[in-house]
Amino acid sequence: MSDTANKASPHGAHDEHGDPYAHIHVSSWQTLVAVFVALVLLTSLTVYVATYDIGRFELAVAMGIATIKCALVMGFFMHLKYDRALNRMVFLGSILFFTLFLGITVIDLDSSKPDIESYRRENPVKTAPATEESKPSGEATKPGDPKKSGEPGQHQKQK
């Protein structure tokens, strides 16, 4: 797909005419529009798929479609397809570290699940935490709920 709309070569050395800006790559408008149409179609697809219950594949499918959209934007709108290999490496490097960060953290907290779940089970919250305090009305000082406050521990129920 060679979209160079003017005489400039994709990149590399100065051409024979001595044009110092010969390295600039120009995309054709047809390519841009085609990419946009593909992106719109993929968006529709992901919304459409989400209306069906496909269980555990839901996240994988949604992320798969998003990744394809991402690749299209990066490749054509951001010219990464025609850019220097170094810039591609820079970008891929960031994705690698992103994955490492997210991956290891999720692995760890996932295996802490039992400790967190048992704590939540044994220490349930009775009301939404903010309701006592951030109720806009001044009900907090109304002496209407004495028994409620007598219960041991609003946040931390005694075992």
Partner: peptide, 19 residues
């Protein structure tokens, strides 16, 4: 969709600037 369209126009703007 709004953002995708803006990306298209932005990419086009780059083309216009280069030409």
């Amino acid at each position: 969709l709004v953002l995708l369209f803006s990306s298209l126009t932005m990419a086009w703007a780059v083309r216009c600037a280069q030409l």
